[in-house]
Amino acid sequence: MIGVRLYLAQRLSALILAPLVAGHLAVIFYAVQGGLDGAEILSRTQGSVGFGLFYGLFVIAVSVHGAIGLRVVVHEHLKLAGRTLDGFTLATGAVLLGLGLRACVAVVG
């Protein structure tokens, strides 16, 4: 239940997410391989502008991508449509963005 504009937002956010996800997987591998625990990871991320920008962009892109993706799923399987569907899409995006940016601040701030 998407037109060309939502489709473009979905695909563009996907293109942004691809390298960010690869980077995120690499970071996790590195952290796990190095046996880092919570405190050690936090000590490296706190105050880091690089981490902030990386994960800030990650959160924005994933909020757009996830909200539009779920929009399609609830339309096709739960038959939501019209205003309800639009409301659901906005709400999903807002929740992901809000919680995500808060997590970013928590880890980097």
Binding site: M1, I2, G3, V4, L6, Y7, V72
Partner: peptide, 9 residues
């Protein structure tokens, strides 16, 4: 073909 029922689905 670019609307709500169009090719992007």
């Amino acid at each position: 073909v670019a609307g709500a029922g169009g090719c992007h689905n």
